[in-house]
């Protein structure tokens, strides 16, 4: 049986894990990732804390943390201190416009490969990697093509499934409604939070763009082989590196460039900024979203309960009402 390798960020290439004969899993797609109230202490990001606790409990699996945020970076320190030996910290550069950053991403992938070998993975064959990249690219493309026409919940579930086992789940087109189109933008969107999409519909809104970290924008890596000349590892590196859309990037203009046409084409009238307690990176963007896109922004805090907390639903309802 293949060992599960849980990824804390969609920007750590799952295809690279599979090429080593191991099973990549988006940690956010795991049903057991978090149940019940968040175990919070002052200033700690709820998602990072859940990742640390998950790593502690799953000693037969590996967990790949990323440096995309300080909280996960330091969460890794805690996981190591608590004895998780199959944890790896992937240095994801924040800058993206220099050769040094590209080189760092590439070398981190090589280092990750060494780690995967050390925990029982096999040396990746270029052909296996190539086939996996092509398959992954097709699935990503199919999912993206159905993004705007599918039901918000169905799409979120299908993307989560893709991050869980790489599979494509056929999507049903959404029934036309006159609900107010909204964008859901922000941090990781976990299975218990899918209910929020129903709650938004019940409030009279509809998520026309799910730009949380783990849903639509997480599909942006694309892998193109030019007449079979490229080495699959190079295609993997550039497929990810050239397409990362992260709030953590500096500058984070790629995020804005990605959002702008989609907000317009999907006629979005308001942004719900979804964030975890203690997440500075997303919360700090609220005002810039307002200024850049000229849209109202509602900050909504992720809770440990399914969907949103009652107080948050109340705010959501009021937000949608103001947009009618």
């Amino acid at each position: 049986m293949q060992m599960d390798v849980f990824l804390t960020s969609p920007w750590i290439p799952a295809e690279w894990i599979r090429a080593h004969g191991l099973q990549p899993r988006g940690i956010w797609s795991a049903e057991t990732f978090q149940h019940g109230p968040w175990p919070l202490s002052a200033g700690v990001c709820a998602f990072a804390e859940a990742a640390v606790r998950f790593a502690e409990a799953r000693t037969n699996s590996a967990v790949i943390f990323s440096t995309a945020c300080d909280q996960l970076r330091r969460g890794f320190d805690t996981a190591i201190l608590r004895g998780q030996s199959r944890a790896f910290l992937f240095n994801l550069p924040a800058t993206w416009q220099t050769a040094a950053a590209t080189q760092m991403f590439r070398s981190e992938l090589e280092r990750l490969g060494q780690f995967l070998l050390a925990i029982g993975g096999r040396a990746p064959s270029p052909e296996v990697l190539r086939q996996d990249l092509l398959q992954s690219s097709r699935t990503r493309k199919r999912l993206l093509e159905s993004a705007s026409a599918s039901s918000p919940r169905g799409f979120a579930e299908a993307v989560a499934r893709f991050h869980w086992d790489g599979a494509f789940s056929p999507l049903q087109p959404a029934a036309p409604t006159n609900h107010i189109p909204l964008a859901l933008v922000g941090g990781p969107f976990l299975a218990p939070h899918w209910k929020l999409l129903d709650e938004i519909e019940a409030a009279g809104g509809r998520v026309a763009l799910n730009a949380t970290e783990t849903v639509e924008c997480s599909l942006s890596p694309t892998f193109e082989f030019e007449a079979g000349a490229n080495h699959p590892f190079d295609v993997l590196v550039h497929g990810y590196w050239d397409n990362i859309i992260g709030v953590f990037q500096r500058p984070n203009t790629r995020l804005y460039s990605w959002l702008k046409p989609r907000l317009a084409s999907r006629h979005v009238r308001g942004i719900v900024l979804w964030h975890f307690t203690g997440c500075d990176l997303w919360r700090a963007e609220a005002q810039t979203f307002r200024e850049t896109f000229g849209l109202p922004v509602l900050l909504l805090e992720a809770s440990g309960e399914p969907g949103a907390a009652p107080r948050e639903i109340n705010r959501l309802q009021a937000f949608v009402e103001t947009l009618r």
């Binding site: 440096t67 945020c69 300080d70 909280q71 970076r73 240095n91 550069p93 924040a94 800058t95 953590f248 500096r250 500058p251 984070n252 997440c279 500075d280 990176l281 919360r283 700090a284 963007e285 005002q287 810039t288 200024e291 850049t292």
Partner: peptide, 23 residues
């Protein structure tokens, strides 16, 4: 990169406000 999120977020906000930053 390996810096505090709050500082990084504030600096990014500063850049959005029109102060170009050499990262």
């Amino acid at each position: 990169g390996a810096v505090c999120d709050d500082f990084s977020a504030i600096a990014q906000r500063l850049e959005h406000l029109g102060h170009p930053i050499f990262w």
